[in-house]
Design a protein around this nucleic acid. Structure first.
Lengths: 312, 312
DNA sequence: AAACTATGATAAATTTAAATTATTGTAATG
DNA sequence: CATTACAATAATTTAAATTTATCATAGTTT
């Protein structure tokens, strides 16, 4: 049994297809066929059920794949140990960021990160929390930045900062004259929300403690970007909530529509999250240090109340 | 990096000698030299410091060895998964048993175990608790039977039975007329003990809540076997304590010298113990089932008080 | 200090294993 | 029924592991 064989098994299990898995492994399809057969012979058990299309795992196969993941993870960690010893921070690092954090946070830290750690090749993807969780679990993502707490067994979290929500209230809105707003002022039915799948949407819904009914709505547009929310709000279609960092680069006219919350201000917790196996911890540490260092200059709120990003 | 290379590294780390490690791996010494060099080249780090005699691990080397152990353990477990799936219970299994349990327990279960599981090749060794802990930790022993609790981080325990202590009191002893004895009757200074290193000795000392002084002793013989203790006791050199199973095959004259304790009788907890990595769990389960099944017929005490087997 | 011994490194040759190209076999699909 | 998709197999090439033989070096003995 070799680690390479286990890699092959994992690739096949993932793609349910020898040919595609072979491409991913940068070898030809017969290589996978023969190596997997060798492993199956050695263990004297079928890992894959080739009679099904697409190919399926057998019962033992599923357990073997699980264990193979452990072994491959543990063996990856040897390089990790060496890197740590050498103080080497580098290599490819795949990070996911949720859409409502990406445009504000990424420009703040990316430049100084790549300057400080030039050997790290960051691959950044915009993903929803759901997608992030799945990809961290299966190892396709090394880490992610998302709203927490997620309370997911296989994922660890390290808080980066707490980001308060700020009300964005158009001139014709019932709350326009309140200098500071309160959570109890909010009514989910005159607020603009992001489309489904955004945890920021879920956070706001949790905050309002009521579900949007859709019944007496004249329109049902739900945007995918916070920028659109602001523009819709300007058209008088309702108020909205913005994460604090989104309020920093508004023009003068727009910032005048901002209404902060009375303390404790509702806020989201933003963390760097990663698999519990703690692979590539040096890079995660590096990211954490850079980001929280930069944020410390931009956000200075103490008295906040964390709103859960999870639906329901 | 291959699993084989990691095996080689582990063998060298253990024997601190390429030649001996090569023998253990059933390959020639140049094989180890070249394979280890290849691994060191790939990781670009020295694992061994060959300038020292005997050879030493470098700092990273130590960490790599630790991780290599994990990987090798995890990869062994794949065969385990397959065995479990097939309901196959077999292969070599190394078990240690402490001296005070070996002669009574082994004859009780060995025959029926090898009959029920003919494919398991048991290798049984008599070892002290100390030796057992070390060998389970380094993987040289698959499991052991010992007095518990040990409260050792890397070792798991599964209780087999509780074995009461029974007083063996010669005719001239101050307690000879007490039908049932009590823990408070015991005086460590008129009792015969096993030699140092036996946990049964430590258990008895704990029971007496006093240390033997050696000061006013006329003799300082400490035996390595319970049989000798009984014979010395017969010579009037003091009383002793026997584990219950040792009292079952005494002749009539000897059994008349037995004095049971008032309930709750002091007892030792006897468990099958194994590494927390839970390798070869099917065999451990099988052993547990056979032994506790047999013991259930021989020991039927409920009201006992467990005495710790650990010194001090 | 010279000779000896133990032990690991290196070289060359051999054996074994992995990977590739080309081809065949076999289900599912239209 | 022909086509397509996809895995297995065969033959060959390439690469890697292992062995035998030899050398280098450090410590030990005489």
């Amino acid at each position: 049994m070799t680690i390479t064989q286990l890699y092959y098994v994992l690739a096949i299990a993932e793609h349910k297809n020898f040919t595609k898995a072979a491409e991913k492994c940068f070898v030809t399809q017969p290589t996978l066929s023969t190596q997997v057969q060798k492993l199956e012979d050695e263990l004297d058990v079928q890992i894959f059920d080739r009679s099904k299309k697409p190919i399926e795992l057998t019962d033992v196969g599923r357990k073997i794949v699980q264990q193979a993941k452990n072994i491959v993870d543990e063996s990856d960690r040897i390089q990790d140990i060496v890197d740590q010893q050498k103080g080497f921070i580098g290599g490819e690092f795949k990070i996911g960021i949720i859409p409502t954090i990406m445009p504000t946070l990424l420009p703040m830290f990316l430049k100084s990160f790549i300057k400080k750690y030039p050997k790290v090749k960051l691959k950044i993807e915009e993903l929803t929390t759901e997608e992030i969780i799945a990809r961290i679990a299966d190892g396709h993502l090394d880490a992610a930045i998302a709203a927490t707490p997620l309370e997911h067994d296989n994922i660890k979290e390290r808080v980066l900062y707490y980001e308060p929500f700020v009300g964005y209230i158009p001139n014709d809105h019932r709350l326009k004259d309140k200098k500071k707003i309160d959570v109890s002022d909010l009514d989910i039915n005159d607020m603009l929300l992001l489309e489904d799948g955004h945890c920021f949407r879920d956070g706001v819904i949790n905050l309002c403690k009521a579900f949007k009914t859709h019944e007496d709505d004249q329109f049902q547009l739900e945007s995918g970007s916070i920028e659109t929310l602001v523009k819709l709000s300007n058209e008088g279609l309702g108020m909205t909530l913005l994460p604090y960092l989104n309020t920093l680069d508004l023009n003068e006219k727009m910032s005048s529509q901002l209404h902060h919350f009375n303390e404790p201000s509702p806020a989201r917790e933003v963390s760097i999250i990663y698999h519990k196996n703690e692979l590539k911890m040096q890079i995660i540490d590096a990211l954490h240090d850079v980001i929280s260092g930069i944020i410390r200059g931009a956000i200075a709120f103490q008295n906040v109340e964390i709103i859960s990003p999870r639906a329901k």
